Each structure stands twice: as structure tokens, then as C-alpha cells.
Computed example of a mutant assay.
Amino acid sequence: MIFTYNKEHVGDVLMVIVSDSKDKKLDVERKGNVARVFQLDNQETVAWNIFQVSSLIDIAGRGQVFLRDEEVAVLNQELQKEGFAESLVNDYEPKFVVGEIVELVAHPDSDHLHICQVKVAEDKIVQIVAGAPNAALGLKTIVALPEAMMPNGSLIFPGELRGEKSFGMMCSPRELQLPNAPQKRGIIELDSSEVAGTPFDPAKHWQVS
């Protein structure tokens, strides 16, 4: 579940993205200051818009925001007040973390993609399909996990690339909009001492040259 807020460009609206709509036809049901966006074919909720949200909670920032449990509880009270049965589920786990490529094989249906097994926590390995020319066994980089919002506003969800499942994205400095990022392809390369699962910290993980 992705919480995103941009008062300057969108207004005082908290957008809550629940799942990937996969380009399916959508409809909107609005009650008061709460709007539910759902798929027409199966009625599944894909997003919520909560208008005038600053009247409910203190909120700031631009882009993906992380809320406290008590703030999510207030928003759920608003949903219930308007007659919605569903609830928002808080998720404050880091979405950009250090990852280590622990296995790398060529994609069977591509001349440039690789299927990588990437360690993103002490006890978690995910599969990521990547086309970075510098992807290599043992490389440590920054991984955008599912439900991350990239600096350009694009969202990361589980998907497939040429028939192979992918659960995240290994990021280039340019994609992370880091200062003086090289304008060429290639994921960020971290020192070998970095620990998989460490939350991304630009001040620590990117030295401006």
C-alpha cells in the first residue's frame, strides 16, 4: 500500500495505491471526502483518494509518504464514517534497500536481460529481471522493492519480463535522481561492506564527485 501526497500539484489529497490496476477499466465511488477507485470487472479496490486530508492528520512532503499507525487509524475512522467496509493497512517498511546479487543467469528469451536472485534482507531473497550491463554476481546495489515510488512518480509492483517473474528493480543513480548521476545505463555500485537490507540513505550510499 503506497501513500502519496503532493499538495502543490494535486491539492490536499492523500492518494493511497492498493494494487496495480494493470490497465483495466476503472470506476470511482465517492462518499464525502473519500473516493474509492476500483476495477469494473471484479470490483477490486485499487486506490483511495482522501480529500482535505490535512483536516484529519498532520501531513507534509511530496511523493511517497509514510504514516504512523495512529494516523492510519484516523483515516480508517473516516472511511468507516462514510460507509466503506474496507480498511487501510499501514506499511512502514523501507522500500529502497541495499541488495546483493547472489545468483545471476541469462534470460532464456533475451540477449541482454538477466534473471537475478537478490538478497534484500538477512532472510529474504527475491527474483529481479534486470538489463543493467554492470549487473554481476556479488554486486551490492540499491533495490526498489514492490510498493516503492520512484522519484519520477512511477510505481514498483511485482510483474514479468518476457515470461519471468520480477519482484522489484535494481536502480541506477539516474533513476534515483542522485546528484551528478552518470547519464548512462548501469545500476549503482556500492562498497562490498554494505549489508543487504540496510535502508537506502543517499548521504551514505552516494558520494558526489
Rank of each mutant, 00 (worst) to 15 (best):
F3S: 05
Y5N: 06
N6P: 08
N6M: 07
L14A: 07
V16C: 08
D20R: 01
K24R: 15
K31H: 13
A35L: 09
A35W: 03
V37G: 12
F38Y: 15
Q39G: 00
D41Q: 09
V46W: 05
N49M: 07
Q52F: 15
V53Q: 01
V53C: 04
S55D: 13
S55Y: 03
A60Q: 13
R62M: 12
D69T: 14
E70L: 03
V72C: 00
A73S: 09
V74A: 01
Q77M: 09
L79Y: 08
L79F: 10
Q80A: 15
Q80D: 09
F84M: 03
F84E: 02
A85W: 06
V89F: 06
V98S: 03
V102C: 11
H107N: 08
S110L: 03
L113E: 00
I115D: 11
I115N: 11
C116F: 05
V118I: 14
V120I: 07
K124C: 11
Q127R: 08
V129N: 08
A132V: 03
P133M: 01
N134A: 10
L137S: 09
G138M: 00
L139D: 04
A144S: 11
L145K: 07
M150W: 08
P151F: 14
P151Q: 07
N152C: 11
N152K: 13
S154R: 14
F157K: 02
G159E: 00
G159M: 05
E160N: 14
K165R: 12
F167H: 13
M169F: 09
M170K: 02
P173M: 10
R174L: 13
N180M: 06
P182G: 03
Q183Y: 03
Q183C: 07
K184F: 05
K184M: 13
D191T: 12
E194G: 05
V195Q: 01
T198R: 14
A203M: 13
A203Q: 13
K204N: 03
W206K: 02
S209Q: 14
S209L: 07
